[in-house]
C-alpha cells in the first residue's frame, strides 16, 4: 500500500479516532499521541489492511483498547495527573463564560461517566454510529450497547435537569 493511499484512507476517520481518544483521555496531547500511535500501528500492519472487514471500525477498536490501557496504566500510578489543556481554545471572555455555562458543563458531566458509557456516548451521539457498529467496535453485544447508552443518557439528563433547576426548586 502506498503512503498517499494510506493517508487518504486514514484521513477519513483520523479525527474520529482523535475525538474518541480525547473523550477517554481528556488531554489533547495524549489524544494526539493515541491517534498517532494507532495510525502507526495500522501503517506497520498495512499488509493486513485488505483482510479487515472495516478498517475504520478496526481502528476505532484499536483506539479504544489503547486508551483503556493508558487509563489503566494511569490508575496504577500513585500520582494522579491532572490535565490542563493550555491552549486557549475559546477566545473571548464573553464566549468563555457562555461556554462555561453550557457546553463545558456537559463535557464535565460526560467526563464523570464510567469509561464504557463515555465511549458509547462518543460513538453514538457524536460520531453517530449505529448500535450494531458500536457493538462490533467494542466487542460487546448490541443490547449491552443499548443498555449502557440509555444509562449514560439518563445520567446526563439527570445532571442537566439538576443544573437547570438549580436555585429554582
Amino acid at each position: 500500500m502506498k503512503e498517499s493511499v494510506f493517508i487518504t484512507l486514514t484521513n477519513g476517520f483520523k479525527d474520529k479516532l482523535y475525538r474518541l481518544a480525547k473523550r477517554l483521555l481528556v488531554s489533547t496531547e495524549e489524544a494526539e499521541d493515541a491517534t498517532q500511535e494507532v495510525l502507526l500501528k495500522l501503517w506497520r500492519n498495512k499488509k493486513q489492511i485488505g483482510t479487515y472487514k472495516n478498517v475504520e471500525a478496526f481502528a476505532m477498536t484499536m483506539t479504544k483498547n489503547y486508551c483503556y490501557d493508558k487509563l489503566k496504566a494511569k490508575e496504577n500510578q500513585n500520582l494522579k495527573i491532572v490535565h490542563t489543556n493550555y491552549t486557549d481554545q475559546v477566545p473571548t471572555l464573553q464566549q468563555q463564560l457562555e461556554a462555561k455555562d453550557s457546553v463545558d458543563w456537559i463535557e464535565k458531566i460526560i467526563d464523570k461517566l464510567p469509561k464504557k458509557q463515555r465511549v458509547i456516548v462518543q460513538l453514538r451521539d457524536v460520531e453517530q454510529y449505529d448500535n450494531a457498529e458500536i457493538a462490533a467496535m467494542l466487542e460487546i453485544n448490541e443490547s449491552a450497547v443499548r443498555a449502557a447508552l440509555s444509562r449514560a443518557r439518563k445520567a446526563i439528563r439527570e445532571e442537566l435537569v439538576k443544573k437547570h433547576m438549580y436555585g429554582v426548586s
Binding site: 483520523k14 475525538r19 491517534t35 502507526l40 463535557e107 442537566l160 437547570h164
Partner: peptide, 26 residues
C-alpha cells in the same frame, strides 16, 4: 426542553473537533 439544547449543541460542537497533528507514516 431548554436544558437539552445545550446537550445537542455540545454534540454538534464535538463533531467539529479535529486533530491538529498530521500523521506522516515513517
Amino acid at each position: 426542553l431548554a436544558p437539552y439544547k445545550n446537550l445537542f449543541a455540545y454534540y454538534e460542537q464535538q463533531q467539529q473537533l479535529t486533530s491538529t497533528h498530521t500523521v506522516q507514516p515513517p
